[in-house]
Amino acid sequence: MQMTKNVTLARAEALPDHAPIKINAMGINVFYGEKQALFDVSIACPDRAVTALIGPSGCGKSTFLRCINRMNDTIVGCRVDGRIEIDNEDVNLKSLDPVVLRSRVGMVFQKPNPFPKSIFDNVAYGPKIHGFASSKSELEGIVEHSLKKAGLWGEVADRLHQPGTGLSGGQQQRLVIARAIAVNPEVILMDEPCSALDPIATAKIEELMDELREQYCIVIVTHSMAQAARVSQRTAFFHLGRLVEAGTTEAIFTNPTDPRTQDYITGRSG
């Protein structure tokens, strides 16, 4: 319990349990071939809030995240059982095209992965393939708007046509966030978005998340409990492929009910 006292909970306002639910997962099991990676995970993520998934590495939190936008479809031999709803709509429905789903659910990865294109083309990528812009000026508008929202506009406004790979790590990650925002998704998934960044860049991303949550449902996987405590309103603790405990961040960090959660957040395991 020593650890919890050091964690800053400044931004993590308590979120009422009756907040509107955006993502509702029920009884999720995931198999990689014969190996089961997730066991009967059920969890709800509220809209306009940050939900953090924490747990030791290999516990299945990233696997769960990839179920939400069906990125697991791209892995050969991966099977997902159970039901995930976004706004009460089953995402695993055969009739729901993953293309449509992923245009509603953006994703940011562990390592910044800007495409080897210009900054402008990186952000314009989504709107272009989905046909969201009917004119060049409209596209420019979307790019500017997204970069502004990602807090990158000031830094790159004068070099939009230089390659995105030339930016610093933190800038690249914000560029990737801008790229995700550009298609105006409802949900943004972040898979350890700061693990490859330095503390200053991390702070900027965290600040950005806090601003974005006013508009989006954000689910973030993190191995840093301090980060979870700083940015999230709800936290879920995964262990060995099972969801151990979920609740408001404050509750999880100050008063965990499960001894495994307690061990993990105090640094005794994991």
């Binding site: 990125m71 791209t74 992923r102 245009s103 393939i129």
Partner: peptide, 8 residues
Amino acid sequence: DGSLAMGA
């Protein structure tokens, strides 16, 4: 992954 996750 980045492109597929954008819905491409």
